[in-house]
Design a protein around this nucleic acid. Structure first.
Lengths: 333, 333
DNA sequence: CTGAAAGCGCTTACAG
DNA sequence: CTGAAAGCGCTTACAG
């Protein structure tokens, strides 16, 4: 490994001068600068970021704690965060929890031993451990928080209640009055709450037995739940789901029962995963602003690092929006 | 931040002794050890991994260069790699290239400045820069390499040719003789080659005009390609696709044209993404051993780190296998 | 604008 | 088994 001293010797200057040109400080005369740059090129010198990290306390790396990456929602967020960080010269330390609080805590401790410059947390279950997060000593931002975020920390998340509300409103505006809801509960509780609020606006109370739990947010689970709903004699005019994956399964189940979407039954999802657009018929859904969330959260972190200031504990609720495609229509008859 | 010196002072010993107990070296008397451990607990001391990294040259972190994470195949691999690393106390530095060679090279340089302990590379386009990889000075393993890997480096990858072969053999064993192939070309060239080899075994040459390119490996792209195939008057008895996503689109297109799967047309995919099992009908496919690949590659890296030896440049080709579900049947009539 | 010194928090030999 | 010294490769004041 070639060090700063090697470069200094080669250029006939001192280590400190090399440091100055490497970091672009304008206190070096053009001539010395040229000499040093030549030496750097000849030797193929690359600054040792670990040494710099020890000296300055900054490592140019940001930790991201996320439940999983094997899920289109989180992987889209991770992809966007990583891209933004790389644009600013930062690297991503990815830490997966798989919903395991112990593992999350281990990661947090480890990230702090590694002196990451900031931490982004998208794990909203089992991590409401504010003291631990505050003790990190670096900027922390919470994102993709669907449960009530712990107070005192900045959060950039989606307005999940509004996502449900928009789905509900879209349906009642089309004239639907007897919705069936299929949701991954209790995880998506708040989305269902929003759906109910929308129908309440037009005087419709969604009865509890019209809300079915899909044990997982998968299309298979949605398929099974829809079959159950149909089996119980219900023939809804519309189905609201807490997730696109569920909606896709629901659509399949309906079709297999000889019901046309949207002519016989309207279906709406939440999320807007890539498959939603590619489905047949293309799925009408409420798009969650993943990229905006990733950008905003990363931006807050990057600014805080630059200004050496903590992130103010503001709560930012990003608004989802309806993406009209082909699975919704007014009720038949 | 509490340092080793603080702990030493508190325990009435020297920094070196603290270091010894922290690293679990058995050269400390039980009494001193207890004193030190008490001091550590009282002070909440955590070793500074950056300082240790500078002193030892090891950072307990592994870099992973991957084209994207917004894709079920790669995100499954990343998830598995991260889990294994975390089990061994290592952290994952995730670097995404999006197929951009320049970005890949930047990441490589950056990873080496950061003294990662090892590098895993799943970007097989535009990174055949062996010298660069060899100069890393740390163990390097290539994985998920579908193009011919550069010589001289260890690789753990899937036998993609065999994946195609198995898909082809599954079809010809059912009695199919006039296949249509829909593939993301040229990326999946080798899979198509395998399919052709399988049919050649039963004396069938797959003509070029039976091989359709899907511009992307998406279900939408598969849907469009299938429509084209049907439009050209072809009414194949079976369709082999280079990807599950394509296969899902193909199935939809067939159904929309009034053709039943598998009664009228058999369909097989490659990959075995989660949706394959959840599709209706569940997709028969050739499963790519992602987890095994992730485990083997990570294992090689971890062993090489432990033994302070480079990874021998062996090439490991993991065998895919057919997962029979519901989209294949013998040709009608 | 350039150089010599001290320090970041740890580990690695090496005496006692 | 314990302690004092030197060093990892950089940066940060501080003289010249």
């Amino acid at each position: 490994m070639v060090t700063m001293d090697d470069v200094a010797r080669r250029a006939g200057v001192t280590k400190q001068t090399v440091s100055n040109v490497v970091r672009g400080r304008a206190v070096v005369s053009p001539r010395t600068k040229a000499k040093v740059e030549a030496a750097i090129a000849e030797l193929g010198y690359q600054p040792n970021l670990v040494a710099r990290g020890l000296a300055t306390g900054t490592t140019m790396t940001v930790g991201f704690i996320v439940p999983t990456v094997a899920n289109p929602f989180y992987s889209a967020v991770v992809e966007e965060v990583e891209t933004l960080l790389e644009m600013h010269g930062y690297h991503l330390l990815l830490a997966t929890t798989r919903g395991d609080g112990e593992r999350a805590r281990r990661h947090l401790a480890s990230l702090s031993s590694r002196s990451v410059d900031a931490v982004l947390v998208a794990e909203d279950r089992d991590l409401g451990d504010v003291p631990l997060l505050e003790r990190m000593g670096v900027p922390v931002v919470l994102c993709a928080w669907e449960t009530t975020p712990p107070g005192g920390l900045p959060v950039v998340t989606v307005d999940y209640e509004k996502a449900g509300y928009l789905a509900g409103r879209h349906m009642h505006k089309l004239g639907h009055r007897r919705p069936v809801v299929i949701a991954d509960l209790p995880a998506h509780q708040i989305r269902v709450q929003g759906m109910r609020r929308a129908f309440a606006e037009v005087g419709v109370t969604v009865p509890d037995d019209s809300v079915l739990a899909a044990p997982e947010a998968t299309s298979e689970s949605g398929y099974a739940a829809m079959l159950r709903a149909l089996g119980s004699g219900n023939k809804p005019s519309c189905v609201l789901t807490s997730t696109d994956a569920i909606a896709l399964g629901v659509t399949e189940a309906l079709r297999h029962q000889g019901l046309r979407v949207p002519e016989d039954v309207a279906v709406i999802g939440i999320d807007d995963i890539p498959q939603a657009a590619h489905a047949h018929p293309p799925l009408t859904t409420v798009s969650l602003p993943k990229r905006r969330m990733a950008r905003d959260a990363t931006g807050l972190l990057l600014n805080a690092i630059r200004d050496k200031q903590p992130v103010p504990p503001d709560v930012s609720l990003l608004s989802p929006e309806v993406v009209v495609r082909a699975t919704c229509a007014p009720p038949a008859g």
